[in-house]
């Protein structure tokens, strides 16, 4: 039987098309855009945003939202620097960073499912909480004022160094691999299927015997763990955890998901959508910077793009709905005859 393209595949192609178009545009306009150096930096920046967005996409596909990812990055980053200071190697810090981020996510999930608070309010509040926690652990001098503090551990710092002499960072590689793994998880396992189910219709999923609370908690843990992972790499790259770490990252990550095709409200999109969305936004940021453009113009372009993505998705949903109704009728006839 001939396999027809479904709407998510078409949406995927559109995003890929946008990324290619943007690459073409910028490489025509700026001779430096496709240089090894620029691509390596571009992928590092995209990976920072993209790791957070990939984790967040799990929560968003499940119909939720996680506004605390910025706070998780901040708190985890600062905690990681402390962990390395007590003598742990960079690899231990990496693992503990993921666990710390996951624990923050677990807290979110616990509040949302056990105390039955909405995701929006819970994670908005816990986001502030995590930022505050970051400040509590921040390095201070004898007078109690904040001070800059460098990471000492060489293994930790090496996580933020380029892999090859020409560039290319570990975070980018990790990002690509994890996005692929997450795609498999979302489409080929029960966990992923259930996440789509609760994002699409929570009540129906519950009636079908899906443990909604468990899936939601796992989603939040994933979101937190990915943010924690991003925090480890970013602190390693910046050689410190500044208190402005992760600031506003939650909104950029949501924007990346939306541009990539994760629908607010759930049920559509996956980690690869988040991957492409983050790549697109990072590319836009990188490309526009080449032209010494004022930041307000960059903001306007980014904002318009997100609006266009949402408007497009709502229109696209209607068009593809009609198309699929027709298709279902045709194929049902051929199948049964």
């Amino acid at each position: 039987m001939k396999k027809k393209l479904n709407s998510s595949t078409i949406r995927r192609f559109i995003t890929i098309g946008l990324v290619i178009a943007l690459t073409a545009l910028f490489s025509l306009l700026s001779s430096n855009f496709l240089s090894m150096y620029n691509l390596s930096e571009l992928f590092r920046n995209a990976a920072y945003l993209g790791l957070i967005a990939c984790g967040l996409s799990v929560v968003m596909v499940g119909g939720g939202i996680d506004l605390s990812v910025g706070g998780i990055v901040c708190a985890t980053g600062i905690i990681c620097v402390h962990l390395s200071d007590i003598g742990l190697s960079g690899y231990m810090v990496l693992i503990l960073g993921i666990i710390t981020g996951g624990a923050f996510g677990l807290l979110n999930g616990f509040i949302v499912t056990k105390l039955k608070l909405t995701e929006f309010v819970t994670t908005l509040a816990s986001g502030f909480l995590f930022f505050g926690l970051g400040l509590v652990f921040a390095y201070r001098d004898d007078h109690g004022t904040l001070m800059a503090h460098s990471i000492k551990s060489n293994t930790y710092l090496s996580l933020g160094q380029p892999l090859l002499p020409g560039g290319f960072y570990l975070i980018s590689l990790v990002w690509v691999v994890l996005a692929i793994i997450l795609w498999v998880v979302m489409h080929k396992t029960e966990l992923g299927l259930y996440t789509f189910a609760i994002g699409s219709d929570e009540k129906s999923a519950r009636m079908s015997g899906v443990n909604v609370a468990k899936i939601k908690v796992i989603g939040f843990i994933m979101s937190g763990a990915f943010s924690g992972l991003a925090a480890v790499f970013v602190t390693a790259y910046e050689r410190t955890a500044s208190t402005s770490l992760g600031n506003m990252r939650e909104f950029l990550a949501i924007a990346a998901c939306v541009v990539g095709g994760v629908v607010l409200g759930g049920g559509k999109g996956d980690a690869v959508s988040a991957f492409l969305g983050a790549l697109f936004l990072a590319m836009l940021d990188n490309g526009l910077r080449k032209f010494g453009m004022d930041s307000y113009v960059v903001y306007m372009i980014q904002g318009s793009l997100i609006l266009v993505a949402i408007a497009f998705d709502s229109q696209f949903a209607k068009i593809s709905y009609r198309r699929r109704v027709k298709e279902q009728r045709l194929s049902a006839q051929t199948l049964t005859s």
Partner: peptide, 10 residues
């Protein structure tokens, strides 16, 4: 049930 228990996106 009258209100169906299906998940629309699946």
């Amino acid at each position: 049930y009258q209100e169906l228990s299906l998940v629309p996106d699946l």
